[in-house]
Nucleic acid binder design. Structure first.
Length: 416
DNA sequence: CGTCCACAGGAATGACGGGCGG
DNA sequence: CCGCCCGTCATTCCTGTGGACG
C-alpha cells in the first residue's frame, strides 16, 4: 500500500512539474476534430457538394455513410457541417445543422430532444410522448423556416434497438413542411445495416451513399504525424514509434482511432516512466496494455455462469490441458457450483456458453472425435492464464476458487 | 462393417423482467 | 396503474455424427 502511494506521489509530482511529453493531450482523443483531415479530401469535397445547396436555401440530398470504426466518418461529417454552418452565418442563409450520436442518446426521445434543442425549442428531459415531441419539433421548424441538416451518428445502434420508426418519420417530415426542409446524414459502422431498414426508408435515406475505406498504414502515418505535431513537444516522438503505431493499427482494419489510442497510451507510458522520448518499446507496451485492458474488462463484465465456465476451463487447463473436453468442464462446473451454493445450468446451456466464450475469443474450441469414446469439443484458453487470475482474484466471490482442487479430474487421472 | 459413445446443436417451450400503450 | 407484448435466458427434447472398437 505504501509503495502504491509512493508511485502516485511520483505521478503527481510529474504532473505538477508539467508534462515533458505532452504539449496538448486533447488532440489525441477520438472526439477531437482536427483542422486538417489527411486523405479524406475526396470525401470532404463530395459531402460538401452534396450539402452546399442548403446555402442557397434549397434542400440537399439525404446521405448514407458507411465505414468501419476509425475511418474518419464522424470527423469528416463534423468538419463539413461546421464549415457549412460557418458559411451559412456569413452569407445569412437560414441553415441549421445538428449532430447527434444515436448510441449515446440511446432512445428516440433523446435524439428528438437533441434535435429540438438545436433549433432552440425547449423540451422537458422526459415525460412527453414521442409523438408529442415530434410534433413540437415539426411546428417550430416550420415556423422558423430553416434548412435543417441532421447528422445521425451510429445510426445502426438506434435501429437495432428501437427499430426504424424514427427514421421513417424523419424521412417523411418534408411532406408536411412548406417553409422548412430537413435533410438527413446517416452514419453507420455496420455495413449490413441496410438490411434492417424498411425499403421505403432506405430509398429515401440513401439518395446519396458514401463508403469510407480503411486507412492504409501510410495514410495512418500521415494522420498521426499531423496530430503528433500538436500533441507532443518537438523531438519527443521517435519516427520508429510513429511508424509502429501506424503499422499496428493498419493490421487492425486501418483503424485511426486505434492508432491514436496507441500513440496516446505510449505517450502516457513514456511520461510515467520519466522518459524523454517515445520509443517503439513504449508503443509495444501500449499495445499490450490496451489489449490487456479490453480482455480484462470483457471477462469482468461476463455473467456469473460464463465466469464459472471460464474458471472451470482455467482450472482444468492448469492441471491437464489435454483433458479439457466439454464433459470434464461440465463436471468441474457442477462441483464449483455446489461449492459456491449456486444452482447449476444444464449441459446444453453450458455448451452454449462455451460457444459464446469461443466467439469472444476467450476460449478456443474445436470439435474432435474420439471414435469409440464419442464426439466432443476440445477446449483451450484464448487468453493467458495470468489475466484470468488477475480478474478472479479481484472478486471476493471467486478469489478462493482459483486455487480450488478439482475432485473429478484428479480422480479420473488416478483411474488411468 | 456396423455399432455406439459423448457429445453438438436445432426447435419448441417456459420463466422473467422491462417497456409501452391504454 | 395495469395488463400486454416482446426480448432474453434457460430448459427439455430431440436428431445428427466421426471414427475407434469389436
Amino acid at each position: 500500500m505504501r509503495e502504491r502511494e509512493n508511485i502516485l506521489d511520483e505521478v503527481f509530482a510529474h504532473f505538477l512539474k508539467g508534462s515533458r511529453i505532452f504539449k496538448n493531450r486533447e488532440v489525441l482523443r477520438h472526439d477531437y476534430v482536427p483542422d486538417n483531415l489527411p486523405h479524406r479530401r475526396e470525401e470532404i469535397l463530395r459531402l460538401g457538394e452534396i450539402t452546399a445547396p442548403a446555402l442557397k436555401g434549397s434542400p440537399c440530398s439525404n446521405v448514407l455513410i458507411y465505414g468501419k470504426t476509425g475511418t474518419g466518418k464522424t470527423a469528416v461529417v463534423k468538419f463539413v457541417l461546421n464549415k457549412l454552418a460557418q458559411k451559412a452565418e456569413e452569407v445569412g442563409s437560414p441553415v441549421k445543422v445538428c449532430f447527434v450520436n444515436c448510441r449515446l442518446a440511446g432512445t428516440e426521445y433523446r435524439v428528438l430532444a437533441a434535435l429540438c434543442s438545436s433549433i432552440n425549442v425547449k423540451v422537458p428531459f422526459t415525460g412527453l410522448a414521442v409523438g408529442e415531441i415530434f410534433d413540437r419539433f415539426r411546428k417550430n421548424l416550420e415556423s422558423q423556416g430553416i434548412i435543417f441538416i441532421v447528422a445521425l451518428d451510429e445510426i445502426d445502434a438506434l435501429i437495432k434497438i428501437r427499430g426504424d420508426e424514427l427514421l421513417y418519420e424523419l424521412t417523411r417530415i418534408n411532406e408536411g413542411l412548406n417553409q422548412s426542409k430537413v435533410s438527413i446524414i446517416g452514419i453507420s459502422n455496420d455495413l449490413k445495416f441496410k438490411d434492417l431498414l424498411d425499403p421505403r426508408v432506405l430509398s429515401t435515406l440513401s439518395e446519396e451513399e458514401m463508403v469510407f475505406k480503411p486507412y492504409t498504414a501510410d495514410e495512418l502515418q500521415d494522420i498521426l504525424m499531423e496530430r503528433a505535431k500538436i500533441a507532443f513537444y518537438d523531438g519527443v516522438l521517435s519516427e520508429g514509434a510513429l511508424k509502429l503505431c501506424a503499422a499496428l493499427a493498419a493490421s487492425e482494419h486501418g483503424d485511426a482511432r486505434r492508432a491514436l489510442d496507441l500513440l496516446r497510451v505510449a505517450g502516457e507510458i513514456a511520461e510515467r516512466k520519466g522518459d524523454r522520448r517515445i520509443t517503439e518499446e513504449h508503443v509495444r507496451e501500449a499495445q499490450e496494455r490496451i489489449e490487456h485492458d479490453q480482455v480484462y474488462e470483457s471477462i469482468k463484465s461476463l455473467p456469473t455462469h460464463s465466469k464459472l465456465v471460464l474458471l472451470s476451463v482455467y482450472l482444468i487447463n492448469k492441471m491437464d490441458p489435454d483433458r479439457c473436453f466439454t464433459g470434464d468442464i461440465y463436471n468441474l462446473y457442477l462441483e464449483i457450483c455446489e461449492q459456491m451454493g449456486i444452482s447449476p445450468l444444464t449441459q446444453r446451456r453450458v455448451s452454449g456458453l462455451i460457444n459464446e466464450l469461443d466467439v469472444m475469443g476467450l476460449l478456443n474450441s474445436r470439435i474432435v472425435s474420439l471414435g469409440r469414446y464419442g464426439r466432443t469439443k476440445k477446449i483451450g484458453l484464448g487468453v493467458s492464464r495470468r489475466i484470468i487470475m488477475d480478474v478472479f482474484s479481484e472478486d471476493d466471490r471467486f478469489r478462493y476458487i482459483i486455487s480450488y482442487k478439482p475432485k473429478s479430474i484428479s480422480l479420473r487421472q488416478n483411474d488411468s
